[in-house]
Simulated assay, not measured.
Amino acid sequence: MKAIQYSRYGSPDVLELVTLDDPVAGPNEVRVRLKAAGVSPIDAKLRSGALQAHFSLTFPKIPGRDGVGVIDQIGEGVVGLFIGDEVCVAADPTRSGTYAEAIVCASSRVVKKPPNLSTSHAAALLQPGVSAWISMCRTAMLSEGMSVLIHGGAGAVGCQMIQLARHLRLNVTTTCRAQNIDYVLGLGAHRAVAYDCYDYGDDYRDDFSLLRHIDVVFDLIGGETHARSYQVLKAGGQLVYLSATPFENQAEKYGVSVTRAMISDAPEALHAVAQLAGEGVLMPGVMATLPLAAAADAHRQFEAGQITRGRIVLNMEDGS
Rank of each mutant, 00 (worst) to 15 (best):
M1C: 08
Q5S: 13
S11L: 05
E16H: 06
E16K: 15
E16V: 00
D21P: 03
P27C: 01
P27F: 04
N28F: 10
A36N: 04
G38T: 07
S48W: 04
L51N: 02
F59D: 07
K61L: 02
G67K: 01
G84M: 08
V89I: 07
G97D: 07
G97P: 10
V111R: 01
P114W: 08
T119L: 02
H121A: 14
L142P: 08
E144R: 14
E144D: 10
E144N: 12
I150T: 00
G152N: 07
C176V: 06
R177V: 01
L185W: 05
V193K: 11
V193W: 07
A194W: 00
Y198L: 11
G201N: 06
F208P: 10
L211G: 10
G222Q: 03
R228V: 02
R228G: 03
G236K: 12
Q238A: 07
V240R: 09
S243E: 05
P246V: 09
P246C: 12
Y254I: 03
S264T: 11
D265F: 13
P267Y: 06
A269T: 03
G278F: 06
A288S: 14
L290P: 02
L292T: 02
D297M: 14
Q301K: 13
F302M: 15
T308A: 12
T308Y: 06
G319S: 09
